[in-house]
Amino acid sequence: MDQKIKFIWVIGLAFLIAVLVLISGCVEEKPKENLTQEKIIEGGNDPHIWLSPKNAKMMVENIYNGLIEIDPDNKDYYKTNKDSYITELDKADGEISKKLLNLKNRKILVFHPSWGYFCRDYNLTQIAIEKSGKEPTLQGIENLIKQAKENHITIIFASPQFSTKSAEVIANEINGNVVLIDPLERNYTENLYKVADAFSKV
């Protein structure tokens, strides 16, 4: 088998194993009530497991374990890369914790509830416009406007993968604006900093 193809196959398989293991762990471990919004996601578990540096570290460890099991000859190479990336994640986690530590308003209004684990890590609460993949009803929009005003929220966070129509309607009613944050940004750690900076402005 061509070495490049073999490497891609190994990475893909290891990533799948890591995700399955991590999802299994998330199902078994119930998040703390006071650190989550609507028990992470109403009616189930948040699939956006990668949007938490702490979860990402678990994924890196799982990927590493999968790789060395399949390709033990390159264990040292994988370990060097693993340790380097975990150091980078620890640094990001620490700096984000400091940035958000003294945030007065700890509630964020989002269109798609992608940020449950991020909010759990940094003691934030996300209020989601979309529920179970569905746009809000008229009554739902009215309730969200009321919540936003009661909590002095003027920023709505939306993802570029979704329509911002409902978010813009609510933003107009609260004299706020819509800010795009991307859960699928290519540069992972850089994006964590960008999101933390955006949340710090609420």
Rank of each mutant, 00 (worst) to 15 (best):
P31S: 14
E33N: 11
E33W: 10
E33I: 15
N34Y: 15
T36L: 13
T36H: 00
Q37K: 08
Q37A: 12
E38F: 07
E38P: 01
K39G: 09
I40K: 03
I40P: 08
I41T: 01
E42H: 11
E42P: 03
E42Y: 12
G43W: 03
G44P: 03
N45Q: 12
N45H: 14
D46Y: 10
D46E: 11
D46Q: 04
D46S: 08
P47T: 08
W50N: 05
W50Q: 08
P53Q: 04
A56L: 12
A56R: 09
M58T: 04
M59A: 10
V60S: 02
V60C: 07
V60N: 02
E61A: 13
E61K: 14
I63A: 07
N65T: 13
N65Y: 12
I68D: 07
I68E: 08
I68S: 01
I68M: 12
I68R: 13
E69I: 13
I70R: 10
I70H: 03
N74V: 02
D76Q: 14
K79L: 15
K79A: 14
N81R: 13
K82I: 03
D83F: 05
S84Q: 13
S84L: 15
I86V: 15
T87P: 00
T87I: 11
T87A: 14
T87W: 03
E88D: 12
L89A: 07
L89Q: 08
D90I: 09
K91R: 13
A92K: 06
A92F: 07
A92I: 05
A92Q: 12
A92C: 08
D93E: 12
G94K: 13
G94W: 07
E95L: 07
E95D: 10
I96P: 02
S97G: 01
K98Q: 10
K98D: 13
K99D: 08
L100E: 02
N102M: 03
L103K: 01
L103I: 10
K104N: 15
N105L: 09
N105V: 11
K107F: 13
K107H: 12
I108H: 00
I108K: 01
L109Q: 02
S114I: 00
Y117H: 06
Y117L: 07
Y117N: 04
C119Y: 01
D121R: 02
D121F: 07
Y122K: 01
N123V: 05
N123Y: 12
L124K: 01
T125H: 08
A128P: 01
A128C: 00
I129K: 00
E130K: 04
E130I: 10
S132C: 00
K134M: 06
P136V: 06
E142A: 12
L144P: 04
I145W: 11
I145Y: 05
I145V: 13
I145P: 09
K146W: 00
A148V: 04
A148M: 11
K149M: 11
K149I: 08
E150W: 06
N151R: 10
I153F: 11
I155F: 14
I155A: 01
F157G: 02
A158M: 02
P160T: 06
P160A: 08
P160G: 09
Q161D: 04
F162M: 09
F162Q: 11
S163R: 02
S166P: 03
A167K: 05
A167T: 00
A167V: 06
E168Q: 15
E168L: 06
V169F: 05
I170A: 02
I170K: 05
